[in-house]
Computed example of a mutant assay.
Amino acid sequence: MEKILGILRFALAREIEGREFYKEKATRAKSKEVRDTLESLWKMEEEHVEFIKSLMEKVQSDIEIDVDSVLTRSDFFEEREKEELSVGTLDDIANDMSILRMAYLIEEDFENFYRTTAEKVEDSDMKRILNTLAKWELGHKNMLFELYNDVKNAYWNKQGFTPLF
C-alpha cells in the first residue's frame, strides 16, 4: 500500500505542476486555438488531480477500487474539431511554438512515468489505472504535436519559405 501511495503522491505533484503550467501559459498564448487548447489542458489536469486524490483516499481507507467505473470518461481530444489557426505576428507564432513544445514535453514525461510505473507495479488494478493515465497523456501529447506542427507550418508560411528538413 505504501508503494502505491508513493506512486500516487508523485503523480499528484506532477499533475499539479502540469495544471499550473497550462494555467499560466494560457494567459501568454497569442493564438486563440493555442489559448483554448491550453485552457482545456488546464481543466483536464485539474480532473487528473482530483482523480488521483480520490484514488489516494481509497487506498488509504483500504476501500476497494471499482476500476471500470473510475476509468470511464470522455476525452476532449477525441471530440476536438480542427479549427483554422489564427496567425499573428512572427513573434506571436514563435511564442506559441515555444509554449506548445514545452507542453508536449510535459505530456511526454507524464506518459512515460505512468507507462514505466505500470510495468513495475504488481497490483493489476493499479497497473490498469496507470496504463489508462498513460493513454490519456498520450492523447494530450499527440494533440499537442499536431497543433505544434500546424503552428510551425503557419510560421514558415508567414516567412514565405519552408526549410528543407
Results as ranks from 00 to 15, higher is better:
M126W: 00
Y104C: 07
D36L: 11
A26Y: 08
K43E: 11
T132Y: 11
W136T: 06
E33Y: 07
K58P: 05
T117E: 03
E33V: 15
W156S: 08
D91P: 03
L105W: 09
F10W: 10
E83C: 12
L164E: 13
E137W: 05
W136L: 10
K82V: 13
N149H: 10
I7H: 04
E39W: 09
T89L: 08
R9P: 03
R73L: 07
E2D: 11
G6L: 08
M56I: 13
T72R: 15
N153H: 09
L133E: 00
T116P: 02
I52P: 05
E24Y: 12
F21R: 09
S40Q: 14
N131P: 03
M97A: 04
M56G: 04
K127Y: 00
E146G: 13
L12G: 06
I16Y: 02
E108S: 14
K127M: 02
R80D: 04
E57Y: 14
R115M: 11
R128Q: 07
I106Y: 03
T116G: 02
K135V: 02
E84Q: 10
K158S: 09
V70Q: 01
L130K: 07
L133F: 03
Y104D: 05
V34G: 01
F110S: 12
E33M: 15
A11E: 01
I129T: 02
Y114T: 05
E17D: 12
W156P: 07
R14Y: 05
D66L: 08
K135T: 11
L90G: 08
